[in-house]
Every structure is written in C-alpha cells, then in structure tokens.
Design a protein around this nucleic acid. Sequence first.
RNA 1: GGACCCGUAGCUCAGCUGGAUAGAGCGUCGCCCUCCGAAGGCGAAGGCCGAAGGUUCGAAUCCUUUCGGGUCCGCCA
Length: 583
Amino acid sequence: MTASLTRRVDDLLAGAFVAAGLPPDTARASRASRPELADLQCNGVMPLAKTTGRNPRELAAGIAALLGARPEFDEVSVAGPGFLNLRLSGGFLADCAQAQAADPARLGIEPVESGLVMLDFGGPNVAKPLHVGHLRTLVIGESLRRILGAQGIRTLSDTHLGDWGLQMGMLLSEIRRRWPDLAPGTLPPLTEADLQVLYPEAAAACRADPARMDEARAATAALQGGDPEARHVWSELRRISLDAQTRDFALLDAHFDLLLGESDVQPLIPDMIADLRARGIAIESEGALIVEVATPGDAKPMPPLLLAKSDGAALYATTDLATLLSRRREYDPARIIYVVDQRQALHFEQVFRAARRAGYVGGIELIHAGYGTVNGPDGKPYKTREGTVAQLADLLADAVGRAAERLPETPPGLDREQLARLVGIAAVKFADLSSFRTSGYIFDAERMVSFEGRTGPYVQYACVRIGSILAKAKAQGAGPGPIAVAAPAERALVLESARLPDVVASASRNLAPNEIADFVFALAQAFSRFYSECPVLAADEDAERGSRLALCALTRAVLEKGLWLLGIAVPERMGRTRSSEVT
RNA sequence: GGACCCGUAGCUCAGCUGGAUAGAGCGUCGCCCUCCGAAGGCGAAGGCCGAAGGUUCGAAUCCUUUCGGGUCCGCCA
C-alpha cells in the first residue's frame, strides 16, 4: 500500500529534523490554520527551542532550507515565532491523489494491529420500545464497529438485552392479574403495542402499591428460580419484544453478531458468587452481598458494588460481572467497549474494579465509551407532546416521511420508499453523530430531519451529483485520466480527500465518530466549491476533463467510505428539486 | 454533602494531547441557474470562548478559585 499524504510529509519533515540535528518526535505536519499562507504547517521546532537552547526561527529556517529544494514543495517558509509553512507542489498533490485513488479498498486507511474487540451497545429492554435515547447507542456503536473494521480490526457486537430482573417480574405479575383465568404458563394474545402500554402501567402500579411490588418480586424470584411456567411466558414476551426491536435495528443498519442478554449469563452467577465468597472478595454488609472496590488512592468516594440483595437476588452489576466472565471464556477479546449512557459511568467503574480485584479481566482492556443524554428544548430528557418518552420508531418514521414529501417526482427506476428511507435515516444519523460523544445534545426533531446545510443529505447530494457527472461522461465516451492539480479548488479538494486516513485513525483512537462526520461534511463542501468553480464535462481540454473526472471519482470514493463509516448509505440518485422549476 | 460532565455568534454545535486573525450550520440581509443536479455556490452582519487569577515565547484548550446548568452517589436495570 502507498503511504498517505500526511505520512509522506511527516517522513520528509522527520528526515529534515534529523539532518538538522533535531529529534524527530515533533516533526509532524497539520492543516494550515491560515490556508492563504500554506497548505500544511509544522509547529514542531518551537518546543525544541527550549531544550536545545537555540533560536526557534533559526531552527525553522534550517529545516525550510532543507525542504524547500525538494520537488514535493513549492515553498517552505518560516513565519512568526517559528511556524514552518509548507506549500505543496501540484505534482506532489497529484501524485498523492493518484496513489489514494489506486487503493480503492482502503483509500490510504492504515491497518491497525489489534486482537478481537467486542462492542456492547443497543441494550434494549424487553417490553420497552426503543426510544430516542437508544438512537445514540445504536448509531455510535455501529459507527465504531465500522471504524474499527476499516482498520482491519476484528469486531464482535453484542446488544446485551435487558431481559432479566425485576422488570420481568413486574410484567409477569401484571399479566397474571389481568388475565387471571389463563392456564398457567400460557400467554394472552399480546402484540408489541400491548406490551408497550403494559409495562409502564405495571411499573407505575408497583411504585404506588407495596403489595404489587411484593408480587412482582415474587414473580421475579419464580422466574430466576427456574419455574417452568414463568420461564415460558417470559420467553414469549422476550420474543415478541425482540422481533420489534430487530426491525428498528435493521432500519438503522445496526449490525449485531450476538443477540445475547442478561438472562444468558444467569447460569454462571451461582458459581461466580460462591467463588467470590470463598475468596473473601464478596462480603456481607447490611444483609446484602457486596464487593468493596474503593482503593486508598481514590480522590472520589467509591461505593461498593452490590452483588446480591438481602433476599439473595442478583442485580445489574452481578449480571455485568458474569457477562464479562462469559465473554472472556467464550471469546477472550483484547478489548471490550461499552457504548452506554454516560450516567452509568460509576456503575462501570465499579464493575471494572470488581472484575480486576477478582482476577476476571485477564488482559482485556475495558472501556466505557459513554455518551451524553438526549434532552428536549427545556434541557430535560426528551418527551413528546403527550409527555411520554419519544419512541425511536416514530422519530425515524417522521424523518422518512419528510424525506418522501421532499421528492417532487420519483426518479425513474428508483424505489421512492427506499430513497426516502436512505435520506431520512441519513439526516437522523448524521445529526446524532455530529455532536461529540460525551456531550449531551438538545433533541430538536425539526433540526434533526432537516436536509439543508450541515446534514447527511447534503453529503449524499454531493455523491449523487458526482455520480451524475460520471454517468454523463461515460455516455459521452469520456473517462478518468491522469490527475493534474492546478486550480485552487482542485488543490483544496485533494488536500481534503487526503485527510481520510488521519481522520479514521483519530476517530478510532478517540472513539469519536463525530470526527468522521466533520470530515465528510468538509469534503462535501470542498467538492461543492470545486463543482461550481471547475467545469468537468465542459473542461477546456481533454486532459483537464480526464483529470477532473478522476478527482470526481476519488472524491466520491472517499465520501462514500466516510459515510459508510457513519452507517450512512448513498442513493444512486435523489429527486430533482430545481428551484427554478418551482413557480 | 461528595464526585463527574458542560457554559464558545440570536439558536444548535465543532474546535480542547497549548500555536498565527476562534469555525460550521440554522436564522437575518444581499448576489448567482441560456452552463456538469440550486438538497447548491459566493458575500455581509453577528464573539471580552461564563468570570477571576496562574503556568509560558504563546491559553477557548493546561492548573486554581468562583458563578451558572446537567448528572450520578449499595438493595431498579
């Protein structure tokens, strides 16, 4: 594979640093903060001024003299306290673009050595519909899965269903109350929609009435004790619920290798608890069984992990601990990434600490990649007008509906519904993935499904226009030729495309899909400028047309790769909405 | 009470391993379709980066304090 543009420049810089007698650690180029002065800049000599005791401008001048003569650069100059400004030559840019285009599978993305990575995201609960909060885990989790995959890392995704515990008991006891005449172990004819009202009502009843809560606890105990009738009803509920959730996963293109849940690791719990007890790691406290996870050096208080309630029932942390045990035994991953609400940070810290204390972790790197909460305009958790939590399926349907309205005509040969889905879902995903993972955002349905400006459809649109140009060229018998880079818009386009490998590496390191979203939008913008400034099919010369067609093809490949990393697909065409045709 | 996250343009957000004149979208006001798809392009207006100290050649970025908002803190998941 060919080295990316930044890698080639970094290597040249490092060579010059060494030749000048400087350590090459800071010999790195970044995008110029002032594009009118340079394409790339290097700030690496300024920190060396102190350690070497030499004037930073003189050091920079030495580097500039070494590099300035090379064919890769048109100009290397020194500015301010010691900035190195690099102006790349058109030949070098063309060469880099050509190399990236010649590697369509990777487009310069560098493979990373890593063992198996498990991704834990989604986390739907049985009998609860997916709501807007699930959007983040699904969309971020799927994007991370693809980003790691693009680096050649093997991944396994598991949705970790919430299919156990008191919530199940509440539901079972509620059903028994409402259908008292049912034969034991049979289920009334329930649909997903029925479940969605049943559960909240059951939960409310339990909160309000201690007797109902006792019933729910008893039902939970029966289920966990292996009661066959409870088990059967439970498994049916689980199936109905999972069917509906699987449809939402499919709509969002979230892929799961495993659909395991809390229930799957229950068999491991008795032995695990016995083991922890025997080794004195689990101890009795106020009637419950706990694991102390605080360490003397802690700056913050670290409450103990609660392993079992006074009645012996297992809890959330117990299940997570057992899940970790199970994953190690079954898959022995190098890393497990939990894409779960940031509010559970303490819970994961406790689980990770307890697991380490118990020696359950081995060499696994445990990461909680938390995400911020989705809030309404008032800054509180998002609610619909009716005051209930907004369902994910409704949001997606809204976005798809708006996209459909937007299509004035159905492009021939294209499924209108499928197109609306591609565009609507792209809008939602792009909006979610644009904000930094750990910061929460204010959920605004209008904004989320808008198609103008910094949106998914904007980027898709750039791809579609490129496709249209390439198709026309083909019909005219023209095709891509050798790349030459001359016009400012061409330079900008090539520089932007060349960032893909750096952006992927960084997004992976930081587990931050928003870096990909930023990039893809910037590239689409660079293309839109190129598009308005540089005629392609109507280029003055054949060579120029061939070069620009090749730039179009490269741009589309990079855009589609970037969008794919976000989990966004690109339609072949979008409906024409020429404003001049609207009267 | 303790801990964590966040205060950046009218609004929604990037930028945070320190770098030159702080970015984008929306909204507002202009301009651009006889020309490859106007879901587009170009331009204007709009900022004491919550506040105050500190660290240094240099701070939106790091440290301390403070004000404002959010979140979490053993028998839910």
